[in-house]
Design a protein around this nucleic acid. Structure first.
Length: 774
DNA sequence: TCGGAAATGTTTTTT
DNA sequence: ACATTTCCGA
């Protein structure tokens, strides 16, 4: 067959080996997508019905691409019938169909993590617990991690490790909150992301008929990015593949970077033991990167202890050495990277789309945005707050969700008084009380207004609201998603409310809603594939929309520089890559430096970053960086030292701003008139040394006077004691213990706003020049 | 009960 | 630094 042309031997073998368990260890850039798609095409060519092929990917985008590529190879419509999607979207589809077996409505709502946290917040308050101690996000993470290990709230309460941890942290109520949360979600007819996996497992595990049905439906199963699956996903896969055992997993343990989401590298290491006669094929030839880049990557990953043995190699050119960019500040880092992009465009005729800037945390995008904008270079940031998380979009979708599933109390409460219609807090409280008392849902209570005792305006307002929702619900059967959304936006006054807001943000919000309406229209009008549900209704729309991410709305052909986290860059490749912020504490992130497992994952993350590059790779780090509005000093990342020296070029630095005259170029007293916010933050601090006196003019002392042991005061951190001073005379760095502000901090004395408090407290007004300047 | 001011939290990564 | 939440006065 001609689709074998261009495949190397192991790739061909991986495509041809159709029956029985197959594990493909596919190094970075080894053509694994090509193998997967060709394999699917080959299966279909061999007569396997596409309806019987299930392929699970990590992102919707990967799924879409895979389908397109199979279509291209086969050059017919057969690929349309494939079951390709993410774990979450495929399972959501199945659950939507089978929901009744679990006692859920078919139109169940999917809660994203914001929805889930907001439900948790309510529950925490209902239990009279402090949400400072029982932080919703923390509770959510605990519950999520339990569900990803298929641990129910009952098991959780008995689980030794969870209980021990909770008790050490003095949070004994988590198990109980877990129970409340699960029951509330169920009552609301809602599943969170983890439920899509957990409930899928329960469905298969507890209902043999259904298990049997899907086991036979999916005769051939393929799983991409297997190293990033969690135990729940793996157990489901084991169940589904138990009859035919035609399971093909593709993964690379060196690229496992999602353990924080419950993924475990154990799955890939365990696969060989869990299935018998596993065929293992390694794809070790890299087609993506230059020798320099690949060798550098290999040189780094070798520092990890836990890994499957493999030797990645390439026939590509040697290429240029990797370039190291050093800067003084984070802004300069942005500037230098942008300048380099501009220069490369000019000299080497690269286009914007050839560049990617990859960072560890979303917060790092700012300086690059600014500098790119200054040079008029088009860019796009991926991740961060996605379109669907915007307030106006959430409000809008809340309405649609309530129409589809009025049992969803969370969304119902969200919209009942928006736009304002005179149903206030106390009214809602009363309704909640009534529903608890009668053991009915919030929505059901709304139809029994006289019994609660509402009369007059309140009664009318509620009745009007209920009638409006009911009218919209009446459309559900006959009308498509767009018709209902359009109708809703008019009858609820939502569109009008936004239209009347003529502020810049208001106009923006209106535009966003328009865009959303357009996307709904598109959803109802596009011809779906036969394999998909031919379901243009609102419920179907809502279920898929929650599972979309930023990357999924990518307009492929835009000529823009791409900015994203390394996590988001997984699976992608770019001619020129900048990996930025390579500093201790940031990357490896401070949170990941406490044990070997986390550090190794961090190193794998770096490996992923490096292997995104095809031709040119730049690594940058900055001496100082703002964090929470404070200047911090960071050492270069240890990962930089791990790159073999002969592949990296150290000389690429902004020498003029870096090595020389650090002290001279910076004003000695970098004084800011304290903002009121800072003052009030100080007020709440208590420190035994001295009573804090509120001051409007905070004049720092000359750092020269500060010694180890000196007691100082910082505008934000409060009082502290200098534990250590190091560095060159022009660039002294002090380690200071701030008992009331999280302990030790490293502070550059040249920049710091510190006042000596054990000598004098004199308010020196003479230095006012620098105040005027600011 | 609303809007502005003050206080507080956030930054590790995401389906 | 920025966003969100809470506080407070009219």
């Amino acid at each position: 067959m001609d689709y074998f042309v261009g495949l190397n031997d192991p790739q061909q073998e991986a495509v041809r080996y159709l029956d029985g368990p197959l594990m493909i260890i596919a190094g970075a850039g080894s053509g694994k997508t090509k193998v997967l798609t060709t394999r699917i095409a080959h299966l279909i060519h061999k007569g396997i019905d596409p309806f019987q092929i299930l392929a699970l990917t990590f992102t919707n985008k990967a799924a879409r691409e895979m389908k397109e590529r199979v279509e291209k190879i086969l050059d017919n419509n057969e690929a349309r019938n494939l079951y390709i999607g993410t774990f979450h979207s495929v399972f959501a589809r199945i659950l939507r169909f089978e929901a009744n077996h679990l006692g859920y409505p078919n139109n169940f709502t999917i809660y994203d993590s914001d929805d889930a946290k907001s439900v948790l917040k309510t529950i925490i308050h209902e239990n009279n617990l402090d949400d400072k101690h029982y932080k919703p996000s923390l509770i959510y993470n605990r519950i999520s991690s339990a569900k990803n290990q298929l641990i129910s709230y009952i098991d959780y309460a008995k689980d030794f490790h969870f209980q021990q941890e909770d008790s050490i942290n003095n949070r004994p109520m988590i198990a109980s909150l877990f129970e409340f949360y699960v029951k509330r979600c169920f009552k609301n007819g809602a599943m969170d992301f983890d439920d899509l996996l957990y409930n899928m497992y329960i469905l298969l595990k507890n209902l043999p008929d259904i298990l049997n049905k899907y086991q036979h439906k999916f005769k051939y199963i393929l799983i991409d990015e297997f190293q990033d699956t969690n135990p729940a996903q793996y157990e489901i896969i084991k169940l589904l593949s138990a009859v035919y055992k035609n399971i093909c997993i593709v993964g690379d343990d060196a690229q496992s970077i999602y353990s924080f989401r419950g993924a475990t590298i154990k799955n890939i290491l365990q696969f060989k033991n869990d299935f018998s006669d596993v065929k293992v094929i390694k794809l070790e030839q890299n087609y993506r990167s230059t020798k320099s880049i690949l060798h550098a990557a290999n040189g780094v990953i070798i520092h990890n202890k836990i890994q499957i043995e493999k030797a990645l190699w390439t026939e590509n050119e040697e290429g240029e050495k990797i370039k190291l960019i050093k800067t003084k500040t984070d802004n300069e880092e942005g500037k230098l990277v942008s300048d380099t992009i501009a220069e490369l465009k000019l000299r080497n005729h690269f286009r914007n789309r050839d560049f990617a800037i990859l960072y560890r945390t979303n917060a790092q995008s700012r300086s690059f945005e600014e500098s790119l904008r200054r040079l008029n270079i088009a860019y796009r940031i991926y991740g961060g707050i996605s379109f669907y998380q915007r307030k106006e979009i959430k409000d809008f979708l809340s309405y649609l969700r309530v129409i589809v599933n009025p049992m969803d109390e969370e969304n119902l409460k969200h919209i009942i008084n928006y736009p304002v219609r005179g149903i206030g807090k106390t009214t809602i409280e009363k309704i909640i009380q009534f529903s608890n008392q009668e053991n009915i849902s919030f929505w059901e209570s709304l139809s029994r207004i006289p019994e609660i005792g509402f009369r007059g305006m309140v009664k009318n307002n509620i009745n009007e609201f209920v009638l409006m929702i009911k009218n919209l619900q009446a459309m559900l059967q006959k009308n498509n998603a767009y018709d209902i959304a359009m109708n809703m936006s008019k009858t609820t006054g939502l569109l009008k409310e936004l239209f009347n807001d003529k502020s810049i943000e208001g106009v923006n919000r209106y535009d966003n809603i328009e865009e959303l309406l357009n996307s709904i229209k598109e959803f109802t009008e596009t011809q779906t594939d036969e394999g998909e549900l031919q379901d243009k209704r609102l419920g179907s729309y809502l279920q898929q929309i929650t599972l979309l991410t930023d990357a999924d709305s990518d307009k492929e052909d835009q000529d823009v520089v791409k900015l994203m986290t390394i996590h988001a860059a997984k699976g992608l490749e770019f001619p020129c890559v900048f990996v930025v912020g390579l500093e201790e504490g940031l990357f490896p992130n401070i949170m990941a430096t406490y044990n070997r497992e986390d550090l190794e994952e961090e190193r794998r993350l770096f490996y992923v970053a490096v292997t995104r590059a095809k031709l040119k790779l730049y690594l940058s780090h900055s001496n100082t960086r703002y964090h929470f509005g404070n200047l911090q000093q960071n050492d270069p990342s240890r990962f930089l030292d791990e790159i073999p020296e002969n592949y990296i070029e150290n000389s690429y630095a902004s020498v003029n701003t870096w090595t020389t005259n650090v002290g001279k170029s910076i004003p000695k007293h970098n004084i800011k008139i304290p903002s009121s916010g800072v003052q009030s933050r100080m007020k709440s601090l208590e420190y035994p040394l001295t009573e804090f006196v509120l001051e409007t003019n905070f004049i720092p002392d000359d750092p020269v006077k500060m010694k180890i042991g000196t007691e100082v005061e910082h505008q934000k951190f409060g009082f502290g004691r200098i534990l250590n001073i190091e560095g060159s005379p022009s660039n002294l760095v002090a380690t200071i213990l701030f008992p009331n502000f999280g302990g030790e901090k490293k502070i550059i004395l040249g920049y710091a706003k510190l006042r000596i408090i054990d000598n004098s407290k004199s308010k020196d007004i003479e230095n006012n020049e620098s105040i005027k300047r600011l």
